[in-house]
Design a protein around this nucleic acid. Structure first.
Length: 474
RNA sequence: GGCCCCUUCGUCUAGUGGUUAGGACUCCAGGUUUUCGACCUGGCAACAGGGGUUCGACUCCCCUAGGGGUCACCA
């Protein structure tokens, strides 16, 4: 019986949360929820130079917006310095690490030389075997030092849940630094110490960390602890096939919110990028994802982010949602969105257009004429459907006949229009298309009669008037 | 460059020795005589290359090529 997973998402607040991070968070979340485990958020803010509070805020906000809320209070790595420090001290005492007095300059020089000779640079390990006397002398002199871990000979083997068996010879690994001269600890050490303390038993993160994993396993062992399970996720690539970078696609999550994407659509898309449920379905509710997710269906190949498909998925979710839900979501984005309107009217509007919108922005864009009379008309549509004054005359007669209608509802309106078309001896389309232009300004939209009914007689007649006066353009 | 990883339609993917190589996005063509960016139907389009193993390879092994990642007193 495997223990319930304890996973974490551990971003560094040196940049915004983008697609890659969001997907890592998502997969951690799904994995934990599916197996009844816990999902933590840890902010890796030990790099004081690059860490910024605004990024912490952005990350947290984006995660919440996506619905990937963490289970316990956030762990800030910067507040755990003492733990890192004492772990290093412990290692030092146990002989698993040693003080290195080499200066940054010295090492840089060696590295340059190695580069000149086109040789691979490796730390010499020179301070590994300092005699007690030497050590005492240096310490007494208060020479600055950093702490390096003693990487033992041999190999590290582990099984990644996505990539399978990985084996790395320790010859490939330096005695890497775990504590800097200033006393702060380095990444490969702090992650392990923190993950141990947090009792993280599954580490799910980007494939860029695959090469770090052997180092971390070495630390686990040096600290006398059993390494957790690892699962690495393939990279999300930009359109150029390269990893997402600031120049290419590493857009902050809030930008997608601002573009009007639904969070569940983004999640749905992200889940499908690197993971597949195995059936042929593409559209999922969030809850279904947590039920179906499994690491062994994660692919190894990096995937190119495709905004077109995101768009399509978002369109699917737009149609699936209830109008009330959509209104609420819209109001989260813009609390004043048509707040002067009757809510029932708004819901009717949404219902009418939601199936042909792909995002909240489109919903807003395509529903404008429900609130304000069109002042201009779609050129292409006019060119095609309102060529000359004969149309104007037809519309004029239609306008007059509409006054006589006693009932104003879709079926009645349709019947009336068709009867009129028959009398005029023209096809119904000769009325329908110009009419749509007249009352919406658009060549496309919902069913005309539903539209007329919702807008109401007064508004419809007023708009017809304006169109008749102004079309065709001279 | 060393090490690690990857390679099915343009893109996301299914596929675990025998399939007409399936689905989705995009694009295109029809249909929907109420339009359409919606919807329906159909179409174009792929196993990187070369060797093996096998009666038979997209599927297993090797090599080549290409791509990605990583090699810091960053995370």
């Amino acid at each position: 019986m495997p223990a319930a997973p304890r996973v974490r998402f551990a971003p560094s607040p040196s940049g915004e949360l983008h697609l890659g991070g969001a997907r890592t968070a998502l997969f951690n979340y799904l994995f934990a929820k599916k197996r009844g485990g816990k999902y933590f958020l840890r902010i890796e803010d030990t790099d004081v130079q690059r860490s910024k509070q605004e990024f912490v805020d952005q990350i947290c906000y984006s995660l919440e917006w996506l619905g990937l809320k963490w289970d316990e209070p956030i762990v800030y790595q910067s507040k755990r310095r003492d733990h890192h420090h004492s772990a290093a001290r412990q290692l030092l005492q146990a002989g698993g690490a040693y003080r290195c007095f080499c200066t940054v300059e010295e090492l840089a020089l060696e590295r340059d030389e190695a580069a000149k000779e086109k040789k691979l640079y490796r730390y010499s390990g020179r301070c590994r075997d300092l005699t007690d006397d030497e050590l005492k002398l240096r310490l007494n002199r208060a020479d600055p030092f950093c702490v390096r871990i003693t990487v033992p000979g041999g190999k590290t083997k582990f099984t990644d849940s996505v990539y399978g068996k990985i084996e790395v010879d320790h010859k490939e690994i330096d005695d890497f630094i775990i504590q800097r001269t200033d006393g702060s600890s380095t990444y490969n050490f702090t992650v392990v110490v923190d993950d141990m303390d947090m009792e993280i038993n599954w580490i799910i993160r980007g494939e860029d960390h695959l090469a770090n994993t052997p180092k971390q396993i070495i630390v686990y062992k040096a600290l006398g602890s059993k390494p957790p399970r690892f699962a690495h996720l393939p990279m999300i690539l930009g359109p150029n096939g390269q990893r997402l970078s600031k120049r290419h696609g590493a857009t902050g999550i809030q930008a997608y919110r601002d573009m009007g994407f639904l969070p569940e659509a983004l999640l749905n898309y992200l889940a499908l990028l690197g993971w597949s449920p195995g059936n042929n379905r593409e559209v999922f509710f969030f809850k279904e994802l947590t039920e179906k997710f499994s690491l062994n269906k994660v692919v190894k190949k990096g995937g190119v982010f495709d905004e077109k498909k995101l768009n399509w998925i978002c369109g699917q979710h737009m149609s699936d949602k209830s109008s009330q839900d959509l209104l609420n979501t819209m109001r989260e984005l813009d609390p004043d969105w048509h707040s002067d309107q009757d809510e029932s009217y708004l819901l009717n509007v949404i219902e009418m257009v939601q199936s042909r919108t792909k995002s909240l922005s489109e919903l807003n864009e395509f529903s404008g004429y429900f609130f304000t009379d069109p002042q201009s008309f779609d050129e292409k549509a006019v060119k095609k459907r309102w060529k000359d004054t004969s149309v104007t005359e037809l519309m004029n007669r239609y306008w007059m006949s509409l006054h006589e209608l006693t009932k104003w509802e879709p079926t009645v309106l349709e019947e009336h229009l068709r009867t009129l078309a028959e009398t005029e001896n023209v096809s119904a389309g000769k009325f329908i298309h110009p009419m749509r232009i007249a009352i919406s300004g658009q060549g496309v939209g919902p069913s005309l009669f539903d539209l007329m009914a919702l807008l109401g007689r007064e508004r419809v007649l007023r708009r017809m008037n304006y169109a008749i006066d102004n079309l065709p353009p001279s």
